[in-house]
Design a protein around this nucleic acid. Structure first.
Length: 763
DNA sequence: ATGGGCTGTCATATG
DNA sequence: AGCATATGACAGCCC
């Protein structure tokens, strides 16, 4: 019960807010197993954001906070953010759709372009284009439906009364006053407080008899210790659950294994495939970033996998349709069906592709060939710098020179029969799928290294930070403003930063701080105040813990000492309360009013000290080092009650400062967390954009290789002038760029051999 | 009147 | 052990 109660309090609420910002589920298990670095650090151990030294960032960071936690706007800000996150969760699976929609728009013309190419001669292109348009739509609709379901769940969760509330109430409400537990000690002070409170209005009537008077006036105060249950916002969890469910459903529809290997060497393809139908291009190494990039330990791999699954669903539909057109043609007229668009004049009736050099084709695998350039590859400029200029990575990734193994689906390879001669397997269905599988399995590795799939899937909710709902991105110098997402998010950031500016301008730190507070030293012990050393703790009462502009904070010298070097109690004595005369009271004139004012401004401990005739200031009591403090006590003949009070004053005063520091630190931690979240969101958005571009490139290349393979293979003729059966023969690329026509059985063997290699290497 | 935020205080843990 | 500090929890005050 106690631990539950613990979780249901302020800390959890704050973390809930923060977690909800990045879409991380808020149930405790996930909470504790969280692997996301900032959150994990906060929960499981000290972090850079949670260490005390970070507290100084409160004043050191001049880039400012988007919205200050105590600004009036902050509440609305967080609330709005949470709500917006929930709203954003509605199109969780449309995350890539934002990208994919654009992709689809251009997918259609691409299909038509390909289909209209006279030499490509592949009827599948147009049909694949059709499929491509309809397929993803289905996928999107499906995910929308599921998302709607999850939204319903979420709504239910949000409306449902928090169960924990009753628990907490039962747990806390013990039906006993707090004084029961420390009656003897606290009652005295409570009585004193009561007396003082009463006396403050009926003038100071404290008899001044010290402990005896205390003992005579024992009264039980009404301090009951009643508490109120803390309500934990519900709904987040259910949202996460439903989203997770959706993700699982979505993944279940994508029949990809994790251990699939990519058997063939695609770099050979880029070198070998002829370029008849394509104008010269460049970047035969374009594939390498697609594949080597996945080996880098991205934190968002799981999310990418989600995206990949979505993308792949679409790709699968394309491939399926392609395969159907290609390989399930009516048996009656297979040749005319499959090769009808092949050139009527064969290249060579006795063509021997042994040593047939198909060089120059590498240029055709350019993303930027006219056909491809017609596609709005959103930010090819961002893609290019990421392309390592070595093609060996392609070799290592695809690892095989067997085009047949590369292109032909396993089932076709295995069940090749002579009667199905004209059936031409989908060369690139295998290519892309295997590539995807390879990528996904690499992602899995990264995931195993510590990225929680749940987190990733929930992080995906934030993917559409391009929607303008993202966190303020203008603060970070690392913000990549190259993309379309940054511009929209910067608009939101401008509003948030302006609100923070207004909030910080709304209250003036220095004006309030100028009002004197600790009046003891002036009204009672001016001579003591002269020697008083130390930070004026009560001063913060006028600061009201206002953390506006850090630059303003840095202008307050004594606050430089409020930190975790614990030097604040050695602050300049110049800042003692004696040197901070309240201007407003001075202007008021009459000394009675001034005294009255000062009297009201005195803290309870100051009243107590005054009542007990403590001969020195509370500042001294609180801020003197232990040695000096003890020395001071020894100078005076103090009663036991006075000594007790002095020690309590010291304890309370120090604790008060500690509490203030603690709260500052807590806020600072939250701010740091928020900044971390912003950075992560920016990184995530950037990585996802890059991934979408990579996928787009891969898809385009897949289609190109597919068509080129078909074309080359379709033009081959045996000695009798008949086309080769794709079930019996396959094209294979040699390492030197030559292309060989080999029997499928041999090709399959080589493919299997190549498959084993990467697995062994991985082990 | 009331809820939420702020602050002081206590209890307790930790260094 | 004593002290200082950190922090969760609570109550009271104020807006």
């Amino acid at each position: 019960m106690l631990s539950l109660k613990k979780y249901l309090t302020e800390g959890l609420l704050q973390f809930t807010i923060l977690l909800s910002l990045i879409g991380v589920r808020v149930d405790v298990d996930t909470y504790l197993t969280s692997q996301l670095p900032p959150l994990r650090e906060i929960i499981l151990g000290p972090s850079s954001a949670y260490t005390q030294t970070q507290f100084h960032n409160l004043r050191n960071t001049l880039d400012g906070y988007g919205i200050h936690p105590k600004s009036i706007d902050l509440d609305n800000y967080f609330t709005a953010r949470r709500l917006l996150n929930q709203v954003r969760a509605l199109d969780r699976f449309q995350v890539p759709t934002t990208e994919v929609n654009a992709w689809l728009v251009h997918r259609d013309p691409e299909g038509s372009v390909s289909g209209s190419q006279p030499s490509s001669g592949l009827a599948l292109e147009s049909s694949s284009g059709l499929q491509d348009v309809t397929g993803p739509d289905n996928g999107v609709r499906e995910s929308e439906t599921e998302q709607g379901f999850s939204e319903d769940l979420e709504d239910l969760g949000a409306v449902a009364p928090p169960v924990s509330g009753d628990l907490t109430k039962e747990d806390i409400d013990l039906g006993a006053g707090r004084e029961i537990f420390d009656y003897s000690h606290r009652q005295k002070e409570q009585d004193v407080d009561k007396e003082l409170r009463d006396g403050a209005e009926q003038e100071d009537t404290w008899p001044g008899e010290g402990a005896e008077a205390l003992a005579r006036n024992l009264l039980v105060d009404g301090e009951t210790g009643e508490s109120f249950p803390v309500q934990v916002p519900g709904g987040e969890d259910q949202t996460a659950l439903s989203l997770e469910e959706c993700l699982r459903l979505l993944e279940a529809t994508c029949p990809f294994g994790e251990n699939a290997e990519f058997p063939a060497d695609i770099s050979s393809i880029t070198e070998a495939v002829p370029s008849e139908s394509e104008p010269p291009g460049l970047q035969n190494n374009l594939l390498s970033p697609l594949l080597t990039g996945t080996e880098s330990p991205f934190d968002l791999e799981q999310q990418w996998q989600d995206l990949m699954s979505i993308m792949e669903m679409q790709a699968m539909e394309v491939n399926t349709s392609t395969s159907e057109v290609l390989y399930n043609a009516p048996p009656g007229d297979p040749l005319s069906t499959n090769y009808s668009l092949a050139p009527n004049t064969p290249i060579n009736q006795n063509v021997s592709l042994h040593q047939a050099s198909l060089g120059g084709c590498s240029q055709d695998f350019s993303l930027f060939s006219p056909e491809v350039e017609s596609l709005p590859v959103a930010s090819s400029s961002t893609l290019l710098p990421l392309v390592p200029s070595n093609s060996t990575s392609l070799n290592s990734t695809f690892g095989s020179t067997n085009l047949a193994g590369l292109f032909f689906p396993p089932q076709l390879n295995g069940t090749a029969n002579d009667t199905a001669g004209p059936e031409l397997p989908d060369p690139l269905g295998g290519l892309l799928d295997e590539a995807m599988l390879d990528e996904i399995s690499l992602m899995d590795l990264a995931i195993e290294e510590g990225f929680n799939p749940v987190q990733a899937s929930q992080l995906e909710e934030e993917f559409d930070s391009d929607s303008g709902l993202s966190l303020d991105s203008s603060h970070s110098p690392s913000s990549l403003s190259s993309s379309e997402g940054s511009s929209s998010s910067s608009s939101s950031s401008s509003s948030s930063s302006s609100s923070s500016a207004s909030s910080s301008a709304s209250s003036s730190f220095s004006e309030e701080g100028a009002v004197g507070y600790s009046s003891d030293s002036e009204t009672l012990d001016l001579e003591e105040a002269e020697g008083a050393v130390g930070y004026q703790p009560e001063y913060s009462k006028f600061c009201r813990m206002s953390y506006q502009d850090p630059s303003q904070l840095s202008c307050l010298p004594y606050l430089e000492h409020v930190g975790h070097n614990h030097t604040y109690n050695m602050a300049p004595s110049a800042l003692d309360s004696a040197d901070l005369p309240p201007p407003s009271t001075l202007k008021k004139g009459s000394k009675e009013k001034q005294a009255d004012f000062l009297d009201k401004q005195m803290s309870r401990d100051e009243h107590r000290a005054r009542a007990m005739k403590i001969p020195f200031t509370n500042d001294k009591i609180i801020n003197l080092p232990v040695e000096e403090f003890n020395e001071l006590l020894s100078k005076y003949q103090l009663s036991e009650a006075q000594l007790s009070l002095i020690r309590d004053i010291r304890r309370r005063g120090k604790n008060k400062m500690a509490a203030q520091n603690c709260r500052k630190r807590k806020l600072d931690t939250i701010l740091n967390l928020e900044r971390d979240v912003e950075d992560l969101q920016r990184d995530k958005a950037r990585l996802l954009r890059e991934k979408v571009e990579f996928l787009r490139s891969l898809r385009q290349m897949k289609q190109k290789v597919q068509s080129l393979y078909q074309e080359v293979f379709g033009r081959l003729r045996d000695e009798n002038g008949r086309p080769y059966s794709p079930s019996q023969y396959a094209l294979q690329y040699a390492g030197d760029g030559s292309v060989l026509l080999i029997p499928r059985t041999l090709a399959d063997q080589q493919a299997r051999r190549q498959e084993r290699k990467p697995k062994d290497r991985r082990k």
